[in-house]
Write a protein that binds this DNA or RNA. Structure first.
Lengths: 350, 350
DNA sequence: ATCGTAATCCGAAGCGCTTTGGATGTAAAC
DNA sequence: GTTTACATCCAAAGCGCTTCGGATTACGAT
């Protein structure tokens, strides 16, 4: 029924050794025989038995990932895309993706089973935390892995992450180019990695434009709509309000948008608004919000898969870092600062 | 380093055969030795090599699923949940989930590789279409599978699906219980399986309550917001408008909601509204819409996994069907019909 | 004593592949 | 003519597990 190496070699009048080596690209088989072998294999529909190969080579030809069970927040929507990107790229290297899920409290057991059982050659660790026990576990056991998101660790490890700092800078550069000088930042608590990084990008971007960040224009807001609403309210109440504001996440962004709306704001006029990650399209709006957009989940998946392949190839971990570059999606909520402000600033400067 | 069967059997002074059979629960090994074996295995941290076992048994101990590549519509949000549910339940049977993705045009190739390569023991086919080439392919090759969604096929096969008909009936029953008699249905084109099934449930529910469905109250709407908006507009313009309306999908539901709002509607007063699948929570609303809610993705995943296990156990496919029961999520958009209408109806009846 | 039976245990043969360590032949180098 | 080198090919030994077909023992039944 199913044709195996033995049958194939017998019909060819060759040894199993030679057929195997021919198929696996060894150099000690002549081009002529290799051609014969490949053709016969295709014609007979020979497919090597993966289990047998894996047993002989000691590899599993599979990568593991543990799905964050019960996590169903907005960030998760992208997870399917990421998985799709990973599998697509892994397939090119004849690697499978083995997906598991587990409740957070027994997550380490799942990792233990997967790596001690040698069902996978490497792991992808999703949703890294600042101090991540899974990373520590894998490092202790000397098991290859790639982290999706950075974490704290003295030992080098491979990771992919979004370049939040570049994103923050990008937004500032856009606003500066439009002529803004008083630019505000509404940011999530700085314990959160992304908030810290975007904050840094914001400050760097301002300084690069020769603008010293003004403390009263940088305010922290809780990671919800109310937070964004109140923060923008405070900014508008300043003696000298900003002409533009960057909100570093889209949850607070929705609140910010409403706060502006409530004060009779017209998109793109008066105050400019950029929201990191944009506003979810499910929310019906009359305007299209300018946003800093992360690369797609698919491209993140590709990057992760590439890193896995590099790790398995034994490349030095120090070099295996990859940052997803965000880009600007220009809508109609940003524009030049109002003329009045410009005149005032010119007077000040003059 | 890693302990295998041979080492384990040597330290125990038993043969590999006996140790293997002890661990796998055969009856021809005494309870005493089994206990010894199990204890020693635990103590030495013995983990059987999956590849070797798979080679010997001919199984792959894995189930395959192909992710609908590039599909990123609203239905996909649930996909992560489903996967999570599947893996969770499969793990109880020591089965892994192998996930692949592929562009639709080469999807069959992916299936071919997976099943001819014997990397998986069975497949789960997601997003079945009415006439599905993947199902036909698997049936031709006699390969075990479970369909996530029904499809057309003369050969019996195992499937899980949501019980759309029950959902339609559920909504009608609710409205009838509230006292409504003139109930409208806004439905998607009936080529779509779900629309047909929900339509059937609607009609069945009405008849069961002794109400003959009125053709002018059942209207088709395109599967978008506009469709829902226009459909409700037409209903409101009738000489004798309905007192309640069921929209069979949440996309048109959003439009329906707006149409009602534009005509000065107060939630729960005047016209009652039920939307199948509810309204996505991302859309900020002043009211909570009553909806027919599908079971969670996780429970769907559990059901799928259970079916897979049954299929692999060789149970007859005719019996392997499972319907996810929807339930009603009562909000504030439904209520008794207005008094005026009730009087009019009473007069008519008398 | 002999037989049958049941309860335990084991040897050895795979499963289908990779890989080591030659074997063989042929042509270039001495 | 012998040696060396190279290019091809192969036999056989695993990889770690399962399982078939006995082997051994003990024990009550004949």
């Amino acid at each position: 029924m199913k044709v195996n190496l033995k049958m194939l070699s017998e019909t060819l009048g060759l040894s199993q050794t030679t057929v195997s080596r021919a198929l696996n690209g060894y150099s000690d088989v002549s081009e002529a025989t290799r051609k014969r072998v490949v053709e016969a294999a295709a014609q007979l529909g020979y497919q090597p038995n993966p289990q047998a190969r894996q047993l002989a080579t000691g590899r599993a030809d599979a990568i593991g990932i543990v799905y964050p069970f019960g996590a169903s927040d907005i960030g998760d929507i992208r997870f399917g895309e990421v998985v799709s990107g990973i599998t697509e790229r892994l397939a090119e290297h004849k690697l499978d993706l083995l997906i598991h899920s587990s409740r957070p409290d027994v997550e380490l057991d799942t990792y233990r089973r997967l790596i001690e059982g040698r069902r996978v050659d490497a792991m992808i660790v999703a949703r890294t935390r600042v101090d991540d026990p899974r990373i520590r576990f894998l490092q202790e056991h000397n098991f290859p892995f790639v982290a999706y998101g950075r974490t704290r660790s003295r030992i080098p490890y491979a990771w992919f992450d979004f370049d939040n700092e570049a994103g923050g800078r990008l937004a500032v550069e856009r606003l500066v180019a439009l002529g803004h000088r008083r630019i505000a930042l509404v940011h999530a608590p700085l314990e959160l990695n992304f908030a810290m990084q975007r904050h840094r990008g914001f400050v760097t971007g301002l300084r690069a434009a020769g603008i010293e960040p003004h403390p009263e224009l940088i305010i922290e807001a809780s990671l919800d709509r109310i937070g964004g609403y109140q923060a923008v309210g405070r900014l508008l109440a300043l003696d000298e309000p900003p002409t533009a504001v960057l909100v570093d996440n889209n949850v607070a962004g929705v609140g910010a948008l409403r706060a502006l709306g409530d004060s009779g704001w017209k998109p793109g006029k008066g105050m400019s608004l950029i929201v990191y990650d944009g506003i979810p399209s499910e929310i019906p709006l009359t305007c299209k919000v300018t946003g800093v957009i992360q690369p797609t989940g698919t491209s993140a998946g590709h990057a992760l898969a590439d890193l896995v392949v590099d790790v398995l190839a034994g490349k030095p971990l120090e070099a295996l870092h990859s940052l997803g570059a965000p880009c600007l999606s220009v809508g109609d909520t940003d524009g030049p600062p109002p003329a009045a402000t410009r005149r005032r600033q010119a007077a000040k400067a003059g």
